[in-house]
């Protein structure tokens, strides 16, 4: 199940505390996954997610009842990630790939730790707006229409960002695979 029952955000909007807890419990892992993939730093990712949930809570009066919750939540989270990225860009000139934490379980079993590490490295090397569009589309499985709504970017530009991200990943990872053989 990828999306929460539509009644839960509405209950939270009406101020029901239990509904907000359900939202946090349901979305926290997905939000943390997105933030980690965007920021490549555990602490920053946790900060972005916590901040995003507090903002979600504060912004519930503006959440339209007919709107879908997923894009709205990820819009707020993507905003927080962008803010942290620009803050970090000012403070950190170099990100060492070796710092990227690998705490998730499955990919190493399927393709080996090296593959997962390569993927993260390549993802980090993408421009932030391409990485964001790629993650929202192919990892969080949001539709282009949803991503356009939450980022405010035109559909055609968005598709181009995802295409460029895919092209870059494909080219670099293919090279890595050929090199490993």
């Amino acid at each position: 199940m990828n999306e929460i029952d539509a009644s839960v955000p509405l209950r939270a909007k009406r101020g029901e505390a239990q509904a907000f807890i359900e939202i946090v419990d349901f979305y926290y892992p997905r939000c943390l996954r997105f933030a980690r993939n965007m920021l490549s730093d555990d602490q920053d990712a946790e900060e972005a997610v916590q901040d995003a949930f507090v903002r979600v809570h504060d912004s519930f009066p503006r959440f339209r009842e007919e709107a879908r919750f997923d894009p709205w939540l990820f819009g707020i989270l993507a905003n927080r990630c962008r803010t942290l990225l620009s803050r970090n860009r000012r403070h950190r000139a170099l990100i060492e790939y070796g710092e990227v934490p690998i705490t998730a379980a499955a990919p190493e079993e399927e393709y080996g730790a090296d593959w997962a590490e390569e993927v993260r490295m390549m993802l980090d090397s993408l421009p932030a707006e391409q990485r964001e569009a790629f993650l929202l589309r192919h990892v969080e499985d949001l539709s282009y229409e949803d991503i356009a709504a939450l980022t405010g970017v035109r559909l055609s530009a968005l598709r181009m960002r995802v295409k460029r991200a895919c092209d870059t990943l494909r080219a670099r990872l293919t090279r890595v695979e050929q090199h490993d053989r």
């Binding site: 946090v24 926290y28 946790e46 997610v49 993260r120 995802v162």
Partner: peptide, 29 residues
Amino acid sequence: DERDELIERVARALKPLPQGNMHARAQIL
């Protein structure tokens, strides 16, 4: 859509969900 076998593998590598963090949940609440 740009999804092919390699992109599928990339997505699968990035999809595993992190463990829930009770302390972080507590901080939010």
